[in-house]
Simulated scan of single mutants.
Amino acid sequence: MIANKESLAIYEYNYLSEKRRVFMLIDSKSFYASVKSVKRGLNPLKSILVMMSEQANTNGGLVLAA
């Protein structure tokens, strides 16, 4: 079935009537690596740091943050 433009307008949602809210998102992996860099006296924007789990827990290690 092909709908015309007028029938599609019925199903459009008006987002202007929604409440305005602010959301904040933190990339936990990058944040953790940045904190570790600062604790080691490194610049978190320029340092290369990889956080790994213990070998015993993952059969070789797992990258937790980079």
Rank of each mutant, 00 (worst) to 15 (best):
R40Y: 08
K29D: 00
K29T: 08
L25P: 03
Y13I: 11
V35E: 01
S47G: 10
S28R: 04
L42V: 03
Y15F: 10
S17I: 13
K36C: 11
R20S: 11
Y15A: 15
S28E: 12
Y32N: 02
L42T: 01
L16T: 12
K29V: 01
A33V: 00
A33Y: 00
Y15T: 15
R20C: 10
G41I: 02
K46W: 00
S28K: 07
E18M: 14
S34A: 15
S37V: 06
F31K: 09
P44F: 00
L25N: 09
L45D: 13
Y32C: 04
S34W: 01
S28C: 07
Y13N: 05
L16V: 09
K19I: 05
L45T: 12
S28V: 07
Y13Q: 09
L16M: 12
Y32D: 01
I48A: 05
K19P: 02
L45R: 08
Y32H: 05
Y13M: 06
K39L: 15
S37K: 03
S30R: 14
S34Q: 03
V38K: 03
R40D: 15
F23R: 04
Y32G: 01
S17P: 08
V22R: 04
Y15N: 15
R21I: 07
S17D: 15
Y32F: 14
K36D: 04
L42P: 00
E18Q: 15
K39C: 14
E18N: 14
V38I: 11
E12I: 10
S30M: 11
K19C: 06
S28Y: 07
N43A: 06
R21M: 09
K36I: 10
K46E: 07
F23H: 07
E18L: 13
M24A: 07
E12W: 07
V22C: 05
N14G: 05
D27Y: 02
R21L: 11
K29R: 13
R40L: 15
L16S: 14
K36W: 05
K39V: 14
K29G: 06
K46R: 14
S47E: 00
K39Y: 08
E12S: 04
Y13P: 00
S28W: 05
P44R: 01
Y15R: 15
V22K: 05
S37H: 02
R21A: 07
Y32K: 08
K39Q: 13
V22P: 00
L16G: 09
Y13K: 10
L45P: 02
V22L: 08
L42A: 01
N14A: 06
M24F: 11
V35N: 03
K19H: 05
K46M: 05
R21C: 10
P44H: 02
L25D: 10
S34Y: 03
N14E: 13
N14T: 06
K19G: 10
L45E: 11
L42F: 09
N43T: 01
E12L: 12
F31E: 05
L45A: 15
P44D: 02
D27K: 09
K36Q: 14
S37G: 09
S30T: 10
F31N: 13
R40P: 03
R20Q: 14
I48S: 06
K36A: 05
N43K: 04
K39R: 12
S17L: 12
A33P: 00
L45K: 03
S30W: 03
E12C: 03
S30E: 08
A33W: 00
L25I: 14
M24E: 14
F31G: 04
K29A: 03
R40N: 13
S37M: 06
G41T: 04
